[in-house]
Design a binder for these strands. Structure first.
Lengths: 199, 199, 199, 199
DNA sequence: TATGAATGAGTGTTCATTCAT
DNA sequence: AATGAATGAACACTCATTCAT
């Protein structure tokens, strides 16, 4: 297939995914019809089906693309900064960079995905990437002598991922973002200072 | 209304909720019909509607009841033990005491509940109870001089709740329970020992 | 279930089948919607689905009922009359007793039924009944010494069934009924007189 | 238009019809898409539409071509043989020469064609040709003094055509070919010997 | 001629909910 | 209280056909 056509197809997919995101954000996954999505970009239902097998494939693509660009971001990038500098502000920035509807969509997706092989696969992939990125970052701190060699960086990394996810879920059920950020900050600070236990 | 009738009503509700749990566990919320639930206890659809306004109220009741009995449990009870003793094993025991389908159901509920006042209310309530219980527990530790007075126990409590929730979500998308427990352990240990930062 | 309810259900099924027959006759199977059928008797689509699993089950029931009452008829009944008396007029009477749209519906059904187990089963059952009835009748003629003992009555019976079916098919594609009757008459007469071969 | 182009068109049509036959055989008419057919010969849907007005025209052409080559065959050819020699083996040979999916396709076509002028026309044409061929053949027998002058050869011819069609229909709903051949044989033998009625 | 992206009408089916009995 | 027949809105998905290139 000529390159120009491939590019066209990619653009078409993107346009559809953008429209889908907007509609999902407005009405939620379940109440959004394929027709809604098509109409938003002024095409017919059939056109959407040329690019996405079905509705579930569409939400999958949307979620995947956002996860890649958003969740992966900051914590996974190598850096010279210390643990607390890296983690403390990152969740707040994550929330800023993330569309407000994303946590909602994530819930929808996970609910839809329960018994779907591909969707589980995607979530496993997400887990893998996040854990890999974050633990890599922590390993760097370890090498820098900043973190004890005994720390299981994979466990910590997965814990931080889960914490982010859990806070996103609470936000989507109404927890103010500020409180979520407080919780995140408190956990990472506690981790850094060991809850300041009296010895 | 005489007390005996009230008790009958409560029992009837419980029977329905048990049936609903079982069916939700088997097929998920969306694919479970009200008829499935009614048939499981040998009554008619109409009978179910005598006790629950609608299907969403039913999943709400089921979720609420499980959250009360399960999530609230251990971390909220007053105890003389130290932070690490209290927290370390609690998530593992939570997983054991929780039916394996609960995380799935929670996803379904949260997805369904996005834009539902009552459901959000329920989740806020859950948040409140968990945070209250856990932070109360932490405050006790603070009073016992085990935790620094500077620690924001509410923030930590909410963080731990969110961490549990996030790990449950990962489990429901395929993360082995053992890995989730590892992550939990690593986080609470890190909090206790402050990641052993070199000073 | 009480008898009265069973009777009600039977009546409901019959009403639906009658409506379906009428709509199928008017527009053909494919172009008739379940809604058309429901509206004809002033009920909702859903009501129809209470009595018939799906559209195909509905045409199956209609076809079966007509085959039982129509095709089975005359040739299968024991009689004292001779071969030619029995057969000659029977096809004409069959055509008279059969709604004019039946051959059309039969085509629709057979087309729909190609790869459907139940439908094939039904057609096999029809074949069995017709062949049994007609050959039984021929066996009586044999016993009466009217037909040679060498004749394979089952083969003849199946041939006559197939001939009826084939003529019905021709009629449904426009062959005048009179010509179909002529063909039938000519075949059975020829069979009776052995085409009057010169010896 | 130069002759060579005409030939090209004919060849293209044939290639498409072959592809269509194969796909119809595999999935039936209704479930075969124009795309399936186009892809099978590596062209686009649009190309198919250059040669056939629409899908129905395509099945029409396929059916017509098969009927011409298959059904018409043997019984229509002049021959010196006697009635029984001509007819007895002909159905068996017809079955052998005919692809096993043809009866299915015929059902599909007739169902599709109910209310279609052109299709009915085609079936009338088929009827005409068959009857003409077979009755011509019988007339030859008559002239040879082998068949009584009283026999209505047109009626007999149409009966034999219908018998073939009916047996094909039974075969397509599961009747073993051997039983169909038995029935055919028994009918033509009975016609030849007049069922050996006692006088 | 050929392509294949786009169209959009068309429909079987499901199921939460209601309500007469 | 219980029944279960009836409702009817809701929707994903298909595919024959067209037409700009």
């Amino acid at each position: 297939m000529p390159k120009v056509v491939l590019e066209y197809k990619e653009q078409a997919k993107k346009r559809i995914m953008d429209a889908a995101s907007a509609e999902f954000a407005k009405k939620g996954y379940r109440k959004t019809t394929m027709n809604d999505i098509a109409k938003r970009i002024g095409v017919s239902k059939g056109a959407v089906y040329q690019y996405f097998e079905n509705k579930e494939a569409l939400i999958g693509a949307v979620v995947e693309s956002f996860i890649e660009s958003a969740l992966g971001g900051e914590l996974s990038s190598p850096s010279d900064k210390g643990f607390i500098e890296i983690t403390e502000g990152s969740f707040g920035r994550l929330l800023k960079s993330m569309p407000s509807w994303f946590p909602y969509l994530l819930c929808d997706f996970m609910s839809e995905a329960h018994r779907d092989r591909n969707a589980k696969q995607l979530m496993r992939e997400v887990d893998r990437k996040l854990v890999e990125g974050i633990s890599g970052c922590l390993e760097d701190r370890k090498k820098a002598g900043e973190i004890s060699p005994n720390v299981d960086t994979v466990g910590v990394a997965r814990g931080l991922s889960a914490l982010q996810l859990g806070l996103l879920a609470f936000i989507s059920t109404g927890l103010p973002r500020s409180k979520a950020i407080e919780a995140w900050t408190e956990i990472v600070r506690s981790m850094a200072s060991g809850l300041e236990l009296k010895k």
